[in-house]
Design a protein around this nucleic acid. Structure first.
Length: 290
DNA sequence: AGCAGCGTCCGGCCGC
DNA sequence: TGCGGCCGGACGCTG
């Protein structure tokens, strides 16, 4: 499941491969065509597959950047600029390849849903096993307002102040801390894995209410989250389940995780416990985390 | 108006 | 080996 560090890894590999290339033709899988024909918003969001295919033709990719867990592909055609806002969901993956057969892992190859054929013959393939991903073609970010509500990038200065301000709002102060740090409007890019790790490092119980944590501890928690995210970026992200970096390689942050997916606490050996918070499985040490 | 709770996109995988 | 149920980023809808 790609969180900020995994998405960052994808962008760093993808950007130099596709920036400057122009789309000649787009092909959408029959499965997505069928889902869309049945009225579902499968992968291609906010427009028909026909409109998407037509609009993408002739687009030049000018810049690829990460914004929270989104990948923003900036485009240009006939003097107009566009934004393809994309999200990997649980199992999305991009493959810049010469031929389809170059997508080596079968489980990705058999779930290819969108193929961008470039004018130089190269292919950019989007594969998504569970189809939770998103390709949303816009002119500007504001055309899809939820994007504007994302918290600032965690590595910029204003992110801490934004977080502290959120912890004081009525809508957040009575919620479990884990639900709040995983909320993309509070902190950008922190999902289940890194929330679990940061709370364990801070000895904070994931179900502790936001208002029962001091401002100093909130500040330390935020800095811990940023540190864990940066550490993961430095180690190529976590390779868990279906996430892969685009070249088929893999990160090794999963070997450095101290709590996520653990049966026993690495500090005190107490069996870990698990509970549902904001609909997600949350693992913690009942002795170390209070 | 804003929010909680649930539905929606799904196939892999687990446990029986 | 077959099969039902669980899992989950993030938004949209409902009450």
């Amino acid at each position: 499941m790609p969180e900020l560090p995994e998405v960052e890894g994808v962008v760093r590999e993808l950007a130099p491969e596709i920036e400057g290339r122009t789309v000649r033709h787009v092909t959408v899988s029959p499965i997505i065509e069928q889902s869309k024909a049945n009225g579902r918003e499968a992968i291609i969001k906010g427009m028909s597959t026909t409109a998407f295919v037509e609009a993408m033709q002739g687009m030049t990719i000018t810049k690829v950047i990460r914004r929270s867990k989104y990948i923003y592909i900036h485009l240009e055609k006939e003097g107009n600029v566009y934004l393809l806002a994309t999200h990997l969901g649980m199992t999305g993956a991009w493959f810049p390849v010469k031929r389809i057969e170059d997508v080596e892992e079968e489980k990705f190859r058999k779930h290819i849903h969108v193929i961008f054929e470039m004018t130089d013959g190269e292919l950019l393939v989007y594969s998504d096993i569970r189809r939770f991903g998103e390709l949303r073609l816009l002119q500007v970010e504001a055309d899809y307002p939820p994007l504007l509500k994302m918290a600032p990038e965690p590595f910029i200065e204003e992110a801490l102040n934004h977080y502290i301000a959120c912890t004081k709002l009525p809508k957040y102060e009575n919620k479990p801390i884990k639900a709040v740090i995983m909320d993309g409007q509070v902190i950008s890019g922190c999902g289940n894995i890194y929330a679990t790790e940061a709370l364990f490092k801070m000895n904070i119980h994931p179900n502790r209410t936001v208002k029962r944590i001091s401002e100093t501890r909130h500040q330390q928690l935020f800095e811990t989250i940023v540190h864990v995210l940066q550490e993961s970026i430095n180690h190529g992200g976590s390779t868990i389940s279906d996430y892969r970096t685009i070249n088929g390689g893999a990160g090794n942050m999963q070997n450095r995780l101290k709590m996520y997916g653990k049966k026993h606490c690495v500090v005190c050996e107490t069996p870990t416990k698990s509970m549902q918070i904001a609909g997600r499985t949350s693992v913690y040490c009942p002795k170390c985390q209070r």
